[in-house]
Design a protein around this nucleic acid. Structure first.
Length: 321
DNA sequence: CTGTAATCCTGCGAGC
DNA sequence: TGCTCGCAGGATTACA
């Protein structure tokens, strides 16, 4: 592992879930007593009025949605955090020495404090006075959580686009929480080339992908996510899933299944790792396939072509009113 | 519609 | 030793 920065945790769903779980018992029931800010701004600018709004706010709970951490505050208010690439959200004793790149500190009523540190400042911390309004907006932009995905809806979303699988998996409106690492790992587990187009997948391949996403993320959550270099979760413990990477960051190393060197190409603007043998680019044709068996009569589900102005895009498939 | 690339940002390692 | 450069990438935006 040489090409990764020192803070590179690349927080995807498993890492964010780990942080949320670590923070939950440390934050629940606590009251924020002040707000301190560092000089550097984050992705979304901090509103000075939030200082007063947060002071005295009691924390009711900590949740995760996609890659977002949601800190529920009393009176239906919300603190929303995105870790970006290098964000770290921790609760530590207030007398703990402050590290560099510390951007936000929320002292708590028990002598500890919630800290947001972020070297590359791709992350964000935002306050919302109306929790329900934010959730409505998030549910409009985010697809379903990747656990217990409805196979039919997932198949519709995947086969309804000409984009490649890597782009589809990174699209948070299709499935929420998948990032570059777990997209590659899921494609490997499903034995699908990440450059395959969504609409080229047969139903059985869609189901394989669906199952692979869930399996990879479940295992990663159980391992407390992946630690690349010295990333730590909200409690200071390291993740272990990086030792289970089959393809990610393993360019040139042997495929764990067939020993073929892992390849790396750029897809959707991201480095994409795969086994050229286990994940063939061309859709496999089975000997048992009857020639000419799939002809007419597509089930009439016409999802596209909505004339309205808004860009509904692929989101329509997984959206529910 | 799809893809590509730039944007934000810092640290690291390769190369000179 | 010390410099530049490319790269890492989540989300967003502009453009081909």
């Amino acid at each position: 592992m040489s090409a990764f920065g020192p803070e590179a945790s690349m927080p995807e769903l498993p890492e964010v879930e780990t942080v949320a779980r670590d923070l939950r018992p440390r934050l629940r029931g606590r009251t924020i007593t002040a707000v301190r800010r560092g000089p550097a701004g984050l992705r979304r600018p901090w509103d000075r009025a939030w200082d007063a709004a947060l002071t005295g706010a009691r924390v009711e709970g900590v949740r995760r949605r996609g890659k977002w951490i949601l800190i529920d505050l009393a009176e239906a208010r919300l603190l929303r955090v995105h870790l970006g690439m290098t964000g770290q959200l921790t609760v530590v004793p207030a007398n703990e020495p402050e590290p560099d790149h510390l951007h936000l500190v929320f002292p708590l009523d028990d002598g500890s404090e919630l800290r947001y540190r972020d070297v590359r400042r791709f992350g964000s911390v935002e306050y919302f006075p109306d929790r329900a309004a934010v959730e409505t907006e998030m549910n409009r932009e985010l697809g379903p959580e990747p656990f217990g995905l409805d196979p039919d809806a997932f198949r519709t979303a995947v086969t309804g686009t000409a984009r490649n699988l890597k782009a589809v998996l990174l699209d948070q409106s299709v499935v929420a929480g998948v990032g570059n690492i777990y997209a590659d790992e899921a494609c490997f587990r499903a034995r699908l080339h990440p450059g395959r187009t969504g609409k080229s997948l047969r139903p059985e391949e869609c189901n394989r992908l669906r199952d692979a996403i869930e399996a990879v993320l479940t295992r990663a959550v159980a391992s407390r996510g992946s630690t690349i270099r010295d990333y730590v979760g909200g409690s200071g413990l390291e993740g272990r899933f990086q030792t289970e990477f089959a393809v990610y960051g393993r360019t040139g190393e042997p495929c764990p299944v067939c020993r073929t060197p892992i390849a790396c190409v750029r897809l959707a603007g991201r480095s994409s790792h795969f086994c050229p043998v286990c994940q063939p680019k061309d859709p496999p044709r089975r000997a048992t396939d009857r020639p000419g068996s799939r002809s007419g009569g597509r089930p009439g589900g016409r999802a596209g072509s909505r004339g309205a102005g808004r860009a509904v895009s692929s989101r329509a498939a997984s959206r529910r009113d």
